[in-house]
Simulated scan of single mutants.
Amino acid sequence: MDRDEESLKRRIRRLRELEKNGRLRAVNGTLADVWREGSEPKTVRLRHSFVIRRPDVVEEPPAAQLLNPRGVALRFYLLALFEAQCRLAPGAQWTGGDRPFRGRRGWNAFIAVDVAYSSTTDTYARALERTQETKRIRQVKGALLTLEGLGEQALVEIPLKRGGKYRDHQAFRLMNETGRGAAALTPDYYTVPPVDKQMIEIPIDFLLQGWVQVLHPSEIFTWLSFRLLSAHFPARHRLSGNYLYAKKREHFHLLRDSWEDSCQTLVEFGLLRRMPTIAEATAARATQGIFGILFPQSGGLGGREDRYEPYRYQLTDKGLAADALETCMKELLIRLKRQGR
Rank of each mutant, 00 (worst) to 15 (best):
R180D: 08
L228D: 05
I111L: 12
R312I: 09
R238I: 05
M275N: 10
I52E: 08
A286D: 10
S49G: 15
R104P: 14
K141T: 07
L24P: 09
T121F: 13
M199W: 02
L333C: 13
R162I: 09
Q209N: 13
I158L: 08
L160Y: 14
Q198R: 14
R335W: 06
P61D: 04
T146A: 04
V58R: 15
I293M: 07
D188I: 02
Y190L: 01
E331A: 10
A324Y: 02
I278L: 12
G319R: 03
D114N: 12
H237P: 00
V115Q: 03
Q288A: 15
L145E: 14
I202G: 00
D33C: 15
G340K: 15
L81M: 06
F221G: 05
V57F: 15
Y243W: 11
R13W: 04
A182M: 06
L325F: 08
P276S: 09
V72N: 05
Y117P: 03
L66W: 04
A112H: 07
L66A: 03
L215S: 08
A246D: 12
W211P: 06
Y166V: 12
A63Y: 00
G292T: 10
A116P: 01
F50N: 00
G340R: 15
D2M: 13
V27W: 04
A32D: 11
R10Y: 04
F252W: 03
